[in-house]
Design a protein around this nucleic acid. Structure first.
Lengths: 208, 208
DNA sequence: ATTATCTATAGATCTATAGATAATGC
DNA sequence: ATTATCTATAGATCTATAGATAATGC
């Protein structure tokens, strides 16, 4: 029998379990992602998260220690795959830097905007800057450095001085994050096409 | 005698008035801008705003009806000057469209990122999407339309189809807003240079 | 008398814990 | 016996109002 259908241990829920097929903890994470990105972190109550996941407020604490854990786990889960791919692309010196930069941009945009709940929107939350999310920030910084290296390698002809390289890195990184905003205001845009266009735009900024 | 130094009507404050020279209401708006952009809207309490403005929590209600009024006033005050300039630029058909688009981008970035508290950061708050800020959204939409028209006029050679024009408009608009994010993570960057570079990047996206 | 402020607080949350309960497992 | 859930609630907020107070103005 499947994991979801069978009789389960423990007191039954007051409301029906949602039939998403997800484990309760994953269901909580999904609910949190949805609410955090649309309403914001501070404005989202533990009750709202729990109830969207089909359980009572207090039951949430059986799976997570609180809101903070939900957010930090969501952040890590979005940035980690990007970094893995960035490392792979950096190492792959058989492919021209320009192609690798394009690929990194394209994939990043798809990841940030392509998911069901605009997970990239989490990056926009002011609360994310807090000290306690230092782990996330470290990974982001490493990702940004991968962008910087690929941008430097792309502009093969003209060698930028450090200030110019940093500026272009900031712009490209800003473009990617800006796309999150675009997607937030118009969630129905064709993500694939968007990702491609963003990557092209990034190359124009990076190029000399 | 100046407005700030003289004896004032009413019970004296418990703490010293801040010597910013601003009226109490303006002081509240400034405090709100600072806190909303750094900590977020929902996470900012009326107490924090009032006390940063040098008064007790309850005294704030003498000047504003609550947090919501503070945010909506801040939003309007940032978008209105942009729109005024956008209208002027649209009407000025003596200047090439490309120059006008560059100027609009440059000025927008300076306005959003140049102020003391990264006012553009207000646009990133999830709460801003709420219905009650419809006035702000309407003005933003008009501003975006000005971008669209200038982008269409810029690409004089190749005439885009509507989808292509919308896509490029979204990208340029996203780039501008992305710069707000960049500035939020690195507040010490040279804004003027940044504004220029962003405008150039926007033109490359807009051009064909 | 008018005004700007204060102190105090009611009412409405929201979080996190304590302890009860209703399943399955053995 | 173990587990997943529930109900109930203490304690900590946070907002907005009521009413007191301490200035100036006339």
């Amino acid at each position: 029998m499947g994991t979801s259908g069978g009789r389960r241990v423990g007191r039954p829920r007051a409301a029906q379990r949602p039939d998403s097929g997800l484990e309760p903890r994953a269901e909580l994470l999904r609910a949190a992602a949805e609410l955090f990105t649309t309403r914001g972190y501070a404005a989202t109550t533990t009750r709202a998260v729990a109830e969207r996941a089909g359980m009572r407020q207090a039951s949430m604490y059986h799976y997570v220690s609180g809101k903070e854990e939900l957010l930090s786990e969501l952040l890590e889960s979005t940035v980690t795959p990007s970094l893995t791919r960035a490392r792979r692309l950096l190492a792959d010196d058989a492919t021209p830097a320009e192609d690798r930069l394009r690929e990194l941009c394209r994939a990043d945009v798809e990841l940030l905007c392509g998911g069901p709940h605009n997970l990239g929107g989490l990056y926009l939350l002011p609360e994310v800057r807090a000290e306690r999310f230092a782990g996330f920030h470290a990974v982001r910084a490493e990702l940004k450095d991968a962008y910087r290296q690929l941008i430097a390698a792309t502009a093969a002809g003209a060698v930028f001085d450090k200030g110019e390289l940093d500026l272009r890195t900031d712009l490209v990184f800003g473009l990617i994050e800006g796309v999150i905003l675009v997607r937030r205001s118009g969630p129905d845009l064709p993500v694939t096409r968007f990702a491609g266009a963003t990557a092209d735009a990034a190359l124009r900024i990076a190029g000399n």
